[in-house]
Amino acid sequence: MEYSSVQLNDLPDEIIFIIFKKLNKLDVLYSFINVNTRFNNIVHDPTFTSDLTLFNYLSYDYIYPLSDLILERFCLQILPKIARQIKWLDLEPLSMKRIFLSANYPNLFRLGIYYIKKQAALNLFTDKTSVMHRLKNDILSFTINTINTQQGASINLDTLVFTHIFNMFTNLQYFNFDPFFLCYQRISFGSSPPTVFSSTLLELHVKVMYIQDCLYLLDGRFINFGHSMLI
């Protein structure tokens, strides 16, 4: 009996789609986009393009960028082709600017930034030339995870970043300022009420230092507030 050889391209679209779903999205896009028209049609499905995590991680506290080779292909060849389909991006700070400059993302409404230094996060939301200003009216859901590189200034920086994010994203509905349980990311407003207000926020996840900080955030400044997680 002779052995038969079945190539991937010999399989029906439905089977190929199932196989691709079992693989890492980035690997699928990197390996199969622009291979041929058939694979292009399959990998342009929202399953592979609507939400992307453009970094690697071994654990929640160890995140690192994509390799230069992979990032270059994504920025030059892949992201410009699928940018209109992307609704959700999770990014790390080293490659974030390059990713945003590689294409326009007209349907992006959900964004996560992970493992960014606290001072760099503050600069990102105070610098009027930063890429965040392009998205200030579009982002409805935002998550940020910062790391501390300075001693003694963590709470003040966290509070400033928290405040400036509300000033930046005017239509925010979901805000997670503490995405990881082990993340030491806390805010405190001292004896003065915060200057943040929102008529759109529905859900907030944040750690506060004192009960007074919690009361400030629950005093009606978030008009449509539906759910909170204040620790």
Rank of each mutant, 00 (worst) to 15 (best):
P46K: 05
V6N: 15
K22P: 06
L91E: 02
K81Q: 01
S192K: 09
T126C: 14
L202I: 05
E2N: 15
S191H: 01
P12E: 13
L94R: 01
Q7A: 13
R134W: 01
L160H: 03
L108F: 04
V43E: 00
S154K: 12
I231F: 07
S4F: 11
K87S: 08
L71S: 10
M96W: 02
T195E: 04
D158C: 13
Q173I: 06
F225W: 10
L89I: 11
N40L: 09
T195M: 02
G190W: 00
L71D: 01
I116C: 12
D45A: 05
L71G: 00
A103T: 03
F180A: 10
T126M: 14
M229F: 11
F181D: 03
I86M: 08
D13I: 09
I116N: 08
E203D: 04
A121F: 05
L76F: 05
F166Q: 06
I63H: 10
G152H: 02
S59F: 07
P65G: 10
T149R: 14
P46D: 04
F175V: 01
H133F: 14
I231V: 08
M132I: 06
R73V: 06
F39L: 11
M132Y: 00
L108W: 04
L111M: 08
I139H: 10
D61E: 14
V131W: 14
S50W: 03
L23Q: 15
M132W: 02
K97V: 08
Y3L: 15
L94V: 01
T129R: 11
R38M: 07
P80V: 06
I231D: 11
Q185M: 06
M1Y: 06
N40R: 07
M1L: 11
F189K: 14
F169L: 09
K22I: 09
I42R: 03
M132N: 01
I18K: 15
F48W: 01
S130L: 04
N145I: 03
N40K: 08
F180W: 07
N36C: 15
V161R: 04
V196H: 10
L29N: 10
I70K: 11
F180G: 07
R73T: 08
L218P: 00
L124V: 02
E203F: 02
I211G: 08
I144A: 08
S154M: 09
Y30A: 08
